[in-house]
């Protein structure tokens, strides 16, 4: 076991879970992180999808890193990521249809998630497959747990439920405020129409 996880490898895995979390510390993948976290279930599925894709794309790129022509390395990375994302998206459509419609375009947009290209270019191109796998899983989970925490808070305070099950009785208004689940652009008109702020201050 000691051979399996050297001290550096533990750091590779644990770093992005704590100190260098992609979302909070590196500020990567924010757009999708905000879009899919209005409920807990899509947040979990999105987190897992990203973890699977970072892990496998890291391994694949790491295995072929010495054969990739330098001039087209970004394109090759993109092809690998796009293929994996398409596979994950197809699997979700087949076995988790309702979640895949909730995530809609954001599954496809994992391709452009900076975490992936960042890890491939910065880590997998220079390290062996096992380290790259750990790095991918670490970064994916680092992304996933932030999503899950945000999704937990947003669904609990926004809909009074968790994973679709009602936690807070529906007459307790504070736990059913749309502020938490609503896209930001809609807030001003909502606030004005429901009398929270005067329409003139919109």
């Amino acid at each position: 076991m000691s051979k399996l996880f050297s001290k550096e490898q533990k750091e590779v895995f644990a770093g992005p879970l704590t100190l260098t979390t992609p979302v909070v510390a590196q500020v990567l993948g924010i757009c999708a992180a905000l879009a899919v976290t209005s409920q807990l279930k899509p947040a979990i599925v999105m987190g897992l999808s990203v973890t699977v894709i970072t892990a496998f794309s890291n391994v694949i790129i790491s295995l072929i890193r010495n054969t990739i022509p330098n001039r087209i390395r970004i394109i090759v990375q993109l092809v690998v990521v796009a293929a994996l994302v398409t596979i994950v998206s197809e699997i979700l459509k087949a076995y988790a249809y309702d979640v895949s419609t909730q995530l809609s375009v954001y599954v496809g947009l994992i391709i452009t998630n900076c975490i992936l290209m960042g890890r491939l270019e910065a880590f997998a191109m220079m390290n062996g497959p096992w380290e790259s796998f750990l790095d991918g899983v670490g970064n994916g989970l680092g992304y996933a747990w932030i999503l899950v925490v945000v999704g937990f808070v947003r669904e609990l305070l926004g809909s009074g439920s968790l994973l679709g099950f009602e936690i807070v009785p529906s007459d307790w208004a504070f736990f059913h405020n749309d502020m938490m689940t609503m896209p930001a652009m809609h807030l001003s008109s909502w606030a004005a129409s429901s009398g929270r702020i005067a329409p003139s201050t919109r």
Binding site: T67, I68, P69, N70, I72, V79, V80, T86, E90
Partner: peptide
């Protein structure tokens, strides 16, 4: 790995492999 021929062959092979894979999954 920096020659033109290698680069073109590499790109073609990659794309063909991925195409077959995705067609199969689909």
């Amino acid at each position: 790995t920096n020659s033109n021929v290698y680069t073109i062959v590499y790109a073609s092979v990659t794309v063909i492999v991925v195409a077959f894979l995705l067609a199969f999954v689909s």
